[in-house]
Design a protein around this nucleic acid. Structure first.
Length: 252
DNA sequence: CGACAAGCCTGGTAGC
DNA sequence: TGCTACCAGGCTTGTC
């Protein structure tokens, strides 16, 4: 719920200063970022998967949260996060920090979010009503190879990473290496339904800072653990270069 | 102290 | 042959 947080704390605030603490997080030149944002105010916020866009003056600030990216708003400078990479100081005295321990995120500018999404071939946002079973099927038709990397590819839906891809297949009872061409129409339907469910559930969970269900795979990402659904053994494999966990019994 | 985990982009290559 | 999709590798750093 980065967008909501950004809206609540930064909308209509005038930026008195932009501080770049670690240039490695930038996707644009430091001088450009500072020049184009200083003195402006954020007037509109949009979200697309793990990307956030905020209009300011004639440009848009673009944030990508990667794995450890987060926002922190504070008024007391002593509360500046340890891994703050870019901080926006507001005239009101507040500060909004983009923090990112692992630097997998990005901070840059774009002239239009729509263009950015198109240029980077990002798939639909999972809550976009245009993302439906039909669209999912249409996308699968031109793909080959294992199902898991497809779920993670940003050209399908923006924002599905390793954990959520595993969780989706776990619930759908599909093996992560199952070739796309060997999925029955019913398998596809199950994957789609579970992908929706997982994303909705995880977003809701984050919003209220809840905990993962003990019945979810997320809580059993360890080899030789037992499946919370069927007691089968949890297996580990590398799929698409990513560590993958699945139940050796009910995921076929 | 080295291996590992994460999201996702890049660049080289296999396939239609 | 030319495009597209696939896949390995790389970035970073706290934790085991």
């Amino acid at each position: 719920m980065y967008a909501r947080y950004f809206r609540r704390h930064a909308l209509q605030q005038r930026i008195s200063r932009v501080r770049v603490i670690d240039e490695r997080i930038l996707g644009t030149r430091k001088g450009t970022l500072i020049r184009r944002l200083t003195g402006q105010q954020f007037t509109e916020v949009r979200r697309h998967g793990k990307h956030l866009f905020a209009a300011a003056g004639t440009t848009w600030l673009h944030l990508h949260f990667g794995m450890t990216g987060d926002l922190a708003f504070y008024t007391d400078s002593a509360e500046e996060p340890r891994f703050a990479r870019v901080v926006f100081d507001f005239e009101s005295g507040g500060h909004l920090a983009f923090e990112d321990m692992r630097l997998f995120g990005i901070v840059d500018l774009t002239h239009d979010p729509e263009d950015y999404i198109r240029d980077h071939r990002l798939g639909l946002d999972p809550i976009d009503p245009n993302f439906n079973l039909r669209e999912f099927r249409r996308h699968l038709r031109k793909r080959r190879g294992a199902i898991k990397p497809l779920l993670m590819s940003q050209t399908l839906v923006a924002g599905v990473g390793n954990l959520y891809a595993d969780e989706t297949l776990f619930r759908a009872g599909i093996h992560p290496l199952r070739p796309i061409e060997r999925l029955t129409p019913n398998d596809v339907k199950k994957i789609y339904a579970n992908l929706r469910r997982v994303l909705d559930e995880m977003v809701a969970l984050k919003a209220r800072q809840g905990e993962y269900s003990p019945r979810s795979l997320v809580m059993h990402r360890e080899e030789n653990d037992h499946c919370p659904r069927c007691r089968g053994e949890i297996r580990r494999a590398v799929v698409g270069g990513r560590t993958t966990y699945y139940c050796g019994r009910h995921q076929v």
